[in-house]
Design a protein around this nucleic acid. Structure first.
Lengths: 239, 239
DNA sequence: TGTTATGATATGTATAGTTGTATAGATTTT
DNA sequence: AAAATCTATACAACTATACATATCATAACA
C-alpha cells in the first residue's frame, strides 16, 4: 500500500489531512481536536505517528497543544498597530477580535532608577504597578506591566482594580487623553513565568515593548512594558 | 537533565514565583496566601499543579497549610533561650512574639519513681500535673507537662486553672523567684497526640526538654517536660 | 449568654483521561 | 551499512472532576 507508489510518509499524510480539515473550517479556532489516541485509532496507526503529524502543524502555528488538556486550533495572528495613539481595546476591536484583560497583580512600590527616569519622577517615588495579561478571543497574547506615578494620579490603584482598562483608569484620574511619546522594541526569550501565562514553551521568542505615554502637557503618565507572544501578534508601524 | 534542557516544569515555576513573593515580603509571616483555586486561576493552570508547587514550599518549611482554612506563611523559628532563668512569657516577648498558653489538663496524681526523684520527694507523693500548649503568635510551638509537689505548694492546682502562668502560680504559692537547676535535651518523634496539638504530622522530630526548677533554697518546685516543634523553635544556650 | 446547626469555603484524596518524553525494536528507504 | 519511519511500551506531567474532611462565620435556638 504505502510502498506501492506514493512517497509521502504516513505522518505527512496525517498532517495534510488535518491541515485540510482546518482550512475547510471543520474545526473553528479554539476548537479542540480529537485526542491523539482517537486520531491514531481513526487512521489506524500508532499514536507517535499522529504526534509527528500534529507537530508539523504546531510548527506551522496552526495548532496549539496543551499537556493534559488536548490539541486546539490556534487563532490567527493579530495585527497590533503601534503609533501615536495605542489603545489595546480599540486595536483589537479594529482587528476583529474580542479583547480582554486579566489583572494578575496590582501593587504599590517605589520606582527603580530606570523607571523613575522614564516617568520623570524622583527615584524611589511611589508608583502603582499593574501586572496583567492581555487576551484576544480568550487567547493570551501578551503579559504587561504598567507603572503609574501615584503622586500625579491619586486613587488610580483602586480604579485599576475595578476597570482593568488603562484608558478608563487614567480618564477617572483626570487624564482625558494621552499619546505615546516613545516605544522601544526588542526580542527576548520567554521566562518560565511568562511562558506559563502566555501558554507557550519556555524560551520562545517574545517581542518586548517599552513605552512611555504622556498627557496633553507632555507629562509622563504611564511607563509600560509589554511582552507579546511572537507567533500571535504582528506589530504594525504606521508610516 | 531537566535543567540542562532549559525547561522548567509548571509546578516549579509556580513554586519559584511564590518563593520570590515570600522573599520580597509580599506576604508577611502568618499571612494567608490566596486559595489554591485563586492561584490556579491566576496562573491559568489546574489546582493540582498549584498544589504541587505549594507542597514544595511546605517541604522547605516556608509555608504551612491547614485543611479547611488555607495556606499560611510559616513563622520564622522562634529563638528560645535556655539558661538560669527560663520564663516562657518573657522569652517570647523578647523574641518579638505574642505568647499564649492553653491548659489542656490539670490533675492531681501520685508521682512516678523518676518524677519523685527529680522533685526530691517521696515516691507516690501527690503532684499537680499541668498539661498544656504553648503558642507564639497563635501558632503552637510546644506541648508541656509541668509537675508541682503539692505538699510544698498548697493550692497551686486551683491557681494554675486561673492564671495558666507557671511563674504567676508559683508566686501565689510564695515562690517569688526560681531558677533552673538542670535541663536535658533529646530529640524524639511526635506521637499522634502531640502531633495533633502541635498541628504537625505524626512522627516529625521534636526537641524534648526535661528540666527542674528550684527555689532560693535549692528546693525543687517544678519538674517540667516540654516538647518543642523542631521547625518552629530554636533553642539557644547562653555561654 | 452560650451552645448547636448549618452553609460556605478551603484543603486533602481519589480516579481517570490527555499530552510529553524516553527507550527499544522492527521495517523501510537511501 | 546507515538513516528515516513506524510500532510498541512505559512512565511523567498536567488536566478534569468528584467527593471527603476540616474550618469558619453566622444564624437559630435553648
Amino acid at each position: 500500500m504505502r510502498d506501492s507508489s506514493g512517497k509521502t510518509s504516513i505522518w505527512q499524510a496525517i498532517a495534510d489531512a488535518l491541515r485540510s480539515d482546518l482550512s475547510e473550517g471543520k474545526y473553528a479556532p479554539g476548537d479542540k481536536l480529537p485526542t491523539e489516541a482517537a486520531l491514531a485509532e481513526r487512521f489506524g496507526v500508532n499514536r507517535h505517528t499522529v504526534r509527528h503529524g500534529i507537530s508539523v502543524l504546531v510548527e506551522e502555528g496552526l495548532i496549539r497543544t496543551r499537556r493534559g488538556s488536548g490539541s486546539f486550533v490556534a487563532a490567527t495572528p493579530t495585527d497590533y498597530p503601534i503609533g501615536q495613539r495605542v489603545r489595546f481595546h480599540e486595536n483589537l476591536i479594529a482587528a476583529g477580535r474580542r479583547p480582554d484583560k486579566r489583572a494578575l497583580q496590582i501593587e504599590v512600590r517605589s520606582a527603580t532608577e530606570g523607571e523613575a527616569k522614564a516617568l520623570q519622577i524622583a527615584p524611589t517615588d511611589p508608583v502603582c504597578a499593574y501586572h496583567g495579561l492581555s487576551l484576544a478571543d480568550g487567547q493570551p497574547i501578551a503579559v504587561f506591566e504598567s507603572l503609574f506615578p501615584i503622586q500625579r494620579l491619586a486613587g488610580i490603584t483602586g480604579t485599576l482594580a475595578k476597570t482593568s482598562s488603562v484608558t478608563e483608569a487614567l480618564r477617572l484620574c483626570g487624564i482625558s487623553d494621552y499619546t505615546r511619546r516613545s516605544t522601544r522594541l526588542t526580542a527576548v526569550r520567554a521566562t518560565a513565568m511568562q511562558a506559563l501565562h502566555l501558554q507557550v514553551s519556555e524560551g520562545v521568542p517574545l517581542m518586548k515593548s517599552s513605552s512611555v505615554n504622556v498627557d496633553e502637557t507632555s507629562t509622563p503618565v504611564e511607563y509600560g512594558r509589554t511582552w507579546f507572544a511572537g507567533d500571535r501578534v504582528t506589530l504594525t508601524l504606521e508610516g
